[in-house]
């Protein structure tokens, strides 16, 4: 059935270009001493690069004084970390229990068929990465699919194509949280 988003088959660790070591050192300096230190550091790096580049992890090991094995251990234990670059659009299918009993597995299969990739996979053109999540807590809207931060509710199989089209057009990118921010 489903596999973890960061399953062993997606752990293809290649040297990556464009990692700014100064940037990483700054993150380590800022976050390293917090509670949850290493995890917070990795979260910030992933927020910056979209994944955890190998060069970056080496820098983290040096900066925190933990062994590279330790750093990789944490990076591969937690589900939300990715060691490979993700596609331009991130598709996340919720597989929570409520979504499951309302047909989420079939929605996931439909995405797999349409994209031709498995869970954790990225399409060859670099457009889409398909991932799953255990529950987003929006159970009333199930089955739920989140694309680039936009929620699609009560998703039915025939609607999958349209969601992909919308993502390609770029309209799933979240607008500035204008309403909420300006209200206060």
């Amino acid at each position: 059935m489903t596999q973890r988003a960061n399953g062993p088959d997606s752990r293809d660790i290649r040297p990556q270009q464009g990692v700014d070591t100064k940037d990483i050192r700054e993150i380590v300096a800022r976050r390293g001493d917090e509670r949850g230190g290493l995890i917070a550091v990795l979260q910030d790096i992933q927020a910056r690069y979209g994944y955890l580049p190998q060069e970056g992890l080496k820098e983290v090991a040096e900066g925190t004084g933990r062994s590279l094995v330790d750093v990789y251990g944490v990076a591969t234990f937690y589900r939300s970390f990715s060691l490979t670059p993700r596609g331009k659009h991130l598709i996340c299918v919720c597989l929570g229990t409520a979504c499951h009993v309302r047909g989420a597995p079939r929605i996931l299969e439909q995405f797999q068929r349409e994209l031709g990739v498995g869970v954790g996979g990225t399409t060859p053109d670099g457009e889409f990465t398909l991932e799953t999540v255990n529950c987003l807590g929006a159970c009333a809207l199930g089955p739920v699919v989140v694309v680039d931060g936009k929620y699609f509710s009560n998703v039915a199989m025939p609607g999958v194509k349209g969601i992909l089209r919308e993502a390609r057009s770029g309209s799933t990118r979240l607008k500035e949280p204008a309403a909420q921010a300006s209200a206060r």
Binding site: E34, R35, G36, L42, F77, R79, S80, N134
Partner: peptide
Amino acid sequence: ISLVRGAGAFVCGEETALIRSIEGKIG
């Protein structure tokens, strides 16, 4: 009080695993 974000591991709801995770280790 400080805020620590988890990173997507169900087992971290177990208290001893949660403590490890707060310490920045494998949960």
